[in-house]
Design a protein around this nucleic acid. Structure first.
Lengths: 152, 152
DNA sequence: TATCATTGCATAGCATGCTGTTCAATTCCA
DNA sequence: TGGAATTGAACAGCATGCTATGCAATGATA
């Protein structure tokens, strides 16, 4: 392990993610948002009225994690939860006007962070890099799936 | 934002890091280790007797974060803290025999996760990918440095 | 249709990260 | 040399992740 730090994909990915999180947190803090709230809003801006279960599937986090994030978003008046018409267990997540108004500035902040992170990359390099990240997501997600009892 | 999820470096980095963390956590749990403890051990296996300040600099986390991780490691009998001979404020972090004995199995577990993550990559692709991660670390770390009042 | 399995969420408990604050030991300097 | 600034750590408070549980509403089925 002379330098696990510069040769391990996992170590580097963790470091890169922490750096991105710091930058994004700072960038959206003025808007009253935290990183996980921003990620959740990305889905809700795309399609409002999703259930917690939908968000869990789309963001690939555990149900309990999403429940906590939604509780904080409700507290901060970014969302409201309304009873689902056909299933009394589920609740529909609705954006507030405030949350809708944050779409443009929040996306601009996030784009700015991405731009700084990839500043030294040519367009081709950036594409290869992003494709690499997607491949790793695929590889590790697949791993998890194989662990599942699948069916039978 | 048709698919910020597949086009944003920050989003992908966060996802990749979470997937790595899940896999690593599962891989080292049988050894009684958690991810952050493993990262800390990586430095201590390399050089024992570091101070908290040294670890903070090498792992790029906040001092308070490291203090908490070291507290859990002490609780779990992975380290001992001894007074520094020349500075009464500092404490030297010493590995226990148990922690030393975990080096081989823990590294093997981590390598296995990295191997699965990069399974589809050729050696050249892997090198380019890791170089990309290092470049982003450099870019975002530099950003932070520029925020500092530097000196003057 | 009464019962059992599944499903959608809420909660509790814990690991990690971060920011902010406080304190005591050291260092600097006027 | 005595007070001010710096430095190494601890602590409090909070955001996110995860696992494990518990519960009420649904669904499936004998």
């Amino acid at each position: 392990m002379t330098s696990f730090k510069t040769r391990s994909a996992g170590y580097l990915a963790n470091h890169v993610a922490r750096l991105f999180a710091r930058e994004l947190a700072e960038a959206v803090r003025p808007l009253g948002l935290a990183p996980a709230q921003f990620m959740t809003l990305l889905e809700l801006w795309r399609q409002d009225g999703l259930t917690q279960k939908d968000l869990v599937a789309r963001l690939d986090v555990e149900q309990a994690t999403m429940a906590a994030t939604l509780a904080r978003m409700e507290r901060d008046e970014l969302i409201e939860r309304r009873p689902d018409q056909s299933d009394a267990r589920a609740r529909r997540i609705q954006l507030t006007a405030r949350a809708r108004s944050l779409e443009e500035p929040a996306l601009a902040a996030a784009r700015s962070v991405n731009a700084r992170a990839l500043a030294g990359f040519s367009e081709a390099e950036r594409d290869v890099f992003l494709a690499g990240l997607r491949r790793v997501v695929g590889a590790l997600s697949r791993t998890a799936e194989l662990d599942q009892p699948s069916d039978l």
